[in-house]
Amino acid sequence: MNNFSIVSSLLDNDFYKFTMQNAVIKLFPLAKAKYEFINRGKHTFPKNFAKILQENLNKMALLKLSKEERIYLEQYCPYLDSSYLDFLNKYQYNPKEVNIFQEGKNIQMYIEGLWSRTILWEVPLMAIISELYYKLTGAQNISEKKIQSITKEKLKKYKKLQVKIGEYGTRRRFSYRIHKLVLEILKKEGKPFFIGSSNVHLSHVFSIKPIGTQGHEWIMFHAAKYGFNIADRIAMENWLTIYNGNLGVALSDTYTSSIFFKNFNKKLSSIFKGVRHDSGDPIYFTKETIKHYKKLKINPIRKKIIFSDNLNPYKVSYISSFCKNKINACFGIGSNFTNDVGFPKMNIVIKMVKAFTKKKWISVVKLSNVQEKSTGKKNMIFLAKKILRI
């Protein structure tokens, strides 16, 4: 058990962590961040879990970007410039940035440090917690044959629907082995509907382009620095400064979609290729998005929505049939690909809780379209709602 390393590459992470890290280095090099582990599913952790987690975490300090990995990034991600790749070349995880405690069956975890460094912890840590949890609670490893047949069955449904699908399942995967197996099938048999994976390491392994743009923390930090009302807009403008219209999908639900659309002005709506839906009723959201584009005299059929909220073939079928001939739909499928093995899926997150900007620590919040996905201190959520008149 102890010789086994769950994360064995610096790139075993979601693509948007690297694109955000690049932007943070360039725009907010001195900003600091605090993150917290949130056990939404109230899972109970076995004895010594924190100790074994710490051992895995310590091994991550040894990870370094390889020459081949750098060449891959240069080839597949031309918008990550050489100054950033030089930074990544020197980057190493520092386990001192992470504090883990176990009390009985509960785990607490806090991450703190420069935002440009700590931003990479969240996804691999969650992947480690997930895989360790299944290993230590005795979940049986499922046969390769079974995984292949489950994945092929889903792929058949998606092909029949003729929808574009991506794989977003790193953070809550059952195991690295199953993740790799699923991607192998998607790459081999998914053409032309499979558009890529958010996992940069596995994208490198299978020579495919990694996908993704930005996460909620990008906008949450902007709210701490510039205020809730304009956080969406400034976050998008800053993104354009760094990427000039590349990676142009805007995240729509950090402070609810109605606030997002107020910030998504004609210029931004024209330049960004589309929006990502991550919470709330997908059909209602689609109607609102189409209405928004039409109001600005932008043809919605030239735009896209990337749906990424807890998807499965049934939901994809329902959403895609509604979007047909109205707006382009793509689907980022997470644990339904990487953790559909007959065991309950973990419901865990690691979220930014504080940002150090303007010379002080400021609590950050996320006001999702659904209450259970909102995060932050109660008094800050109350304040944000008051300011935004939600």
Rank of each mutant, 00 (worst) to 15 (best):
Y91I: 00
D278K: 00
K164C: 07
H292K: 13
T357K: 03
P78F: 03
I348E: 01
I259D: 04
S82T: 12
H216E: 11
V182K: 02
L251Y: 14
E184I: 01
K64Q: 14
K105W: 01
N106I: 03
I147K: 00
W121P: 03
N244A: 07
C77Q: 08
K358S: 14
G342M: 06
I52D: 11
Y76Q: 14
K42D: 12
F356W: 12
F382R: 12
N347D: 15
S203Q: 02
N336L: 07
I306N: 14
N229S: 15
I178L: 09
Q162H: 13
D278T: 11
A235R: 02
Y134Q: 02
Y314Q: 13
N2H: 12
C330N: 14
L73Q: 00
T19M: 04
N265T: 08
E167F: 14
G166F: 09
Y176W: 13
G104L: 05
K267F: 15
S66M: 03
R302I: 12
S203N: 07
D86K: 13
N265E: 09
I259Y: 02
K64T: 14
I71H: 11
R172E: 12
A127C: 09
W239I: 01
K146R: 10
P300C: 11
V182F: 09
G376S: 10
Y72N: 07
L30G: 07
K154D: 11
K160Y: 10
I150C: 01
K188W: 04
P192N: 07
K315G: 10
G113K: 02
P192M: 05
F28A: 08
D86P: 00
I38P: 00
Q108G: 05
K386C: 10
S317C: 01
F382W: 06
F356M: 06
L296F: 10
F260N: 04
L88Q: 05
G190K: 01
R40Y: 12
A355H: 03
L125R: 00
K294R: 15
R40I: 08
K135S: 05
I306C: 14
P192Q: 06
I129M: 09
I165P: 08
V370R: 03
Q102A: 10
K315W: 04
K67M: 04
F337S: 00
